[in-house]
């Protein structure tokens, strides 16, 4: 899958849906952690693995700690060829 903002959004929303943590009003600026989707460290680790498997790289493995979907999308935008 490509690293376009749409594809990355699809991956993140798909993951949050699977683990039943997709907030009703989820959007690019919703926190992925406390006060938003509420991901814990293991779920974040899982998201990191899914992003890597789906898009070939992930911001967490690159040492970043994105807080929102928008920041994940920004990582791919900044690192796309």
């Amino acid at each position: 899958m490509s690293t376009s903002a749409t594809d990355v959004e699809q991956t993140v929303i798909g993951f949050l849906t699977t683990i039943e943590k997709l907030p009703e009003a989820f959007g690019p600026s919703t926190s992925l952690y406390a006060g938003g989707a509420g991901l814990d460290s293991l779920e974040t680790a899982e998201l990191s693995a899914i992003l890597e498997d789906t898009h070939g790289a992930d911001p967490y493995s690159a040492g970043e700690m994105p807080q929102t979907l928008a920041e994940i999308q920004a990582y791919y935008a900044a690192n796309s060829a």
């Binding site: 460290s41 293991l42 974040t44 680790a45 990191s48 693995a49 967490y60 493995s61 040492g63």
Partner: peptide, 12 residues
Amino acid sequence: GRPNAMTGAIVA
């Protein structure tokens, strides 16, 4: 174990 930046490893 699959290496992971968040937890050192995850169960794969």
